[in-house]
Design a protein around this nucleic acid. Structure first.
Lengths: 225, 225
DNA sequence: CAACGATGGATATTCGAATATTAGTTGATT
DNA sequence: AATCAACTAATATTCGAATATCCATCGTTG
């Protein structure tokens, strides 16, 4: 916002580029040129390069040495692999969370779900109804809180990486599915988790993710750009 | 090899720093100063910085903004979490590999195992017997090949990250365990995989990793530095 | 006409100096 | 003697210019 020529710091630029890739500012497959990015983020090549190489390390952008960086491309195969891996991993984490989670964890997931339920899913100002940023944040927070009880930094770290990749896909297939009761699905997962029914909770989580992936895949093959 | 003042390229420096961290050149917890690294690798700060930030992204080194980088510290808690996560994940991958793997995969694991079996485990030139680099490479290749049949880039990528972290621990607790029959353990895993017995193979893999982790943990608490 | 090589513009990569930050030390004040 | 501020040395961070590489275009040669 401030147009003052302040020194940019890597962490901020990194976070912004990441948010922009996740948020759909840069299209999948699009090349990310230094000149353009430096201007956009008001930083020098060094800090932009560091941000991009970190993002490349986590797979959100790809790096072709001596050629440049580009936003990760989306393919059906990759989406399926990602979905499968994510389901398996989160199943594992959720199971542990249900087994180990204490009252603190229960409070957290109840709170996160409440916030999600009370956040409007769509923007009402934009002409084409779009999923609101607030909802995306609350949604990620709810799913994150579910796993947080598993008490395994490694598992949580991996799950976060996979969630980011999945969010990237979701953003680009904003097919409005009016029939779908996402709210009810979340509530059902929450209830099973609170009831400490690991089999039921993980099965509901699996269906939830699979359903989303199917919608995304349909959108992907239809537009087919 | 040529000591000529050629331009260093990031990829090479990254690979070398990574190998040195994994190989034990830099001690756990040790600070990584730019001046020293630039000299050691004959590169400028930019390329060293990029290498370190990528390594930080995958958790092998830690970054404290404005303070510097340091090699990841080792703790018993982290080791246990890592081991558990790795076992769960590789179990998943191995199960899929056994289910989906074709003759090509079978050939690969047989070949990798043969090489491992024929590689000397210890160096005979060094005064204190140390696990040889060749064996480390062959060992990583064997375990990698076991999972390679699972046909899931995401799963394989995560497994590689975890394997690197585990290797880091292993390097620093080179307790010679003369009684252990590592060779036999590998053969047993191979045989179960070839027999397509997923339950047996994953159980043997789990025991194999758990045994290693226990040894590492013992070394960790004993030296206690 | 096809294949190959040269040329120039666009772009990524690397460098080293300039700048900002931290941490340790000295010296002054209470 | 203890506390804190100012200074200094060590170090990380950022910048923009210099360099190397890629890619498309055009001309040359067989």
């Amino acid at each position: 916002m401030a147009s003052t020529k302040q020194r940019a710091n890597t962490e901020a630029v990194y976070a912004q580029v990441r948010a922009d890739v996740l948020g759909g500012v840069h299209r999948p497959g699009e090349r990310l040129k230094f000149s353009a990015l430096c201007e956009r983020y008001g930083a020098s090549v060094s800090v932009v390069r560091e941000a991009l190489s970190r993002l490349a390390e986590q797979g959100l952008v790809v790096s072709e040495p001596r050629i440049g960086f580009a936003v990760r491309a989306m393919t059906v195969d990759d989406l399926r692999d990602l979905t499968m891996t994510r389901i398996e991993l989160e199943t594992l984490a959720l199971r542990k969370a249900i087994e180990r989670g204490d009252v603190d964890w229960e409070s957290q997931i109840v709170a996160a779900h409440h916030r999600l339920e009370r956040t409007a899913m769509f923007t009402d100002d934009d002409a084409p109804p779009r999923v609101s940023d607030d909802w995306e944040v609350a949604h990620a927070a709810f799913h994150g809180s579910l796993l947080s009880g598993c008490d395994s930094p490694w598992l949580l770290g991996i799950a976060t990486t996979l969630r980011d990749a999945a969010e990237f896909y979701r953003r680009w297939s904003q097919i409005v599915e009016p029939d779908r009761d996402a709210c009810g699905e979340h509530r059902a997962i929450l209830e099973a988790a609170l009831a400490r029914d690991a089999d039921l909770a993980t099965e509901r989580l699996r269906e939830h993710y699979q359903r989303t992936a199917d919608i995304v895949e349909r959108g992907l093959t239809e537009q087919d750009d």
